[in-house]
């Protein structure tokens, strides 16, 4: 708007800039610094160079385990959740009656899913004599040791995240509904079957949303805390001891701030590398309609 000072806009974004510097930029730099120190809150941080990282990668068996568990969790949960969200969104996208009702039913768990109450519920329904096992036995199957067995525990935790597929689904559904219907008609006349319609029209057109969901879900899955903290407390045998739990324990139970920062940075770098790979590869598979590319 013409006559205003060119700094006027800066005044409006000033709260953000202050918040950014204080609560994001400064902590970001500080945590990098802390990761090279030994800091127990009582005395000043003591520079130890690469010691924390050396210890992490050579002597810390807990870190090895935790890293493995985290990667397994993310690579198991994210594809499962997204595939399921897309599958249900595709079905909902047929002109069905009561679409609103279904959408609500599928979405409610995403709203509540992160809460402690739901983690509590998860403990109860997957307990040895919990709801799921009672149902399995009622149907003539054997009860499963969902949390007690290190083989199963991580899977049970990741089910909790998959149960919250609703928010990804709503985003998929919005994208599906915006696909131009005339494309389908044209392709049908040319003799394309339903699978081909999906594979060659729908899927390419919604790749931007797949990409968005993939990035967001991956970043979040790496930071899962509530589920394993409440449900299994990282156990049994550390089979659900995700890195955020390890960081929390190191920082706020042992007050080993330097070491905890180093773990956080390793986690951060892993997330960044994976996101960068996704961004880099997106040029090859994400479709942007002509002028929308920006």
């Amino acid at each position: 708007m013409g006559g205003d000072s060119k700094y006027l806009g800066l005044w409006y974004v000033a709260p953000y800039v202050i918040g950014l510097l204080l609560f994001t930029a400064f902590p970001f730099v500080a945590s990098f610094y802390l990761s090279f120190t030994d800091y127990d809150l009582l005395s000043k941080p003591e520079w130890t160079g690469l010691d924390n990282y050396k210890k992490l990668f050579t002597r810390d068996r807990t870190f090895d385990k935790s890293l493995k568990v985290t990667l397994t969790y993310v690579f198991m949960t994210v594809p499962l959740k997204l595939a399921f969200a897309l599958f249900i969104a595709v079905i909902l996208n047929y002109r069905l009656r009561a679409i609103g009702l279904f959408r609500t039913a599928f979405y409610v768990p995403s709203i509540l899913g992160g809460s402690i109450a739901i983690a509590v519920l998860w403990r109860y329904i997957f307990a040895d004599t919990g709801l799921v096992n009672m149902m399995l036995e009622g149907l003539g199957f054997e009860a499963v040791n969902w949390f007690g067995d290190p083989e199963n525990a991580l899977f049970t935790i990741s089910l909790l995240r998959c149960w919250q597929f609703g928010s990804a689904m709503v985003i998929f559904l919005a994208a599906l509904q915006s696909v131009d219907k005339s494309l389908y008609e044209a392709a049908s006349i040319d003799g394309a079957n339903k699978w081909q319609l999906f594979r060659y029209i729908t899927l390419p057109l919604i790749t931007p949303v797949i990409f968005f969901n993939l990035i967001m879900q991956t970043v979040q899955a790496f930071q899962e805390f509530n589920g394993p903290y409440i449900i299994t407390e990282g156990g049994p045998l550390k089979s659900t001891y995700l890195l955020p739990l390890y960081i929390y324990d190191k920082a706020f139970k042992s007050f080993d701030m330097g070491y905890a920062s180093a773990i956080a940075w390793v986690l951060f770098v892993i997330i960044m590398v994976l996101t960068s790979i996704a961004f880099w590869s997106s040029k090859k598979w994400v479709y942007y309609a002509g002028d929308k590319r920006s």
Partner: peptide
């Protein structure tokens, strides 16, 4: 609605923060 100096850089930090995992800033924030 406004143009101002450093707008591009500041806006790019919005996107970066969107993707920045909290886990890395939590300890110094504390």
């Amino acid at each position: 609605r406004f143009d101002f100096p450093f707008k591009k850089i500041i806006f790019s930090t919005v996107i970066a923060t969107l993707l920045l995992p909290n886990v890395v800033t939590r300890i110094p924030q504390y």
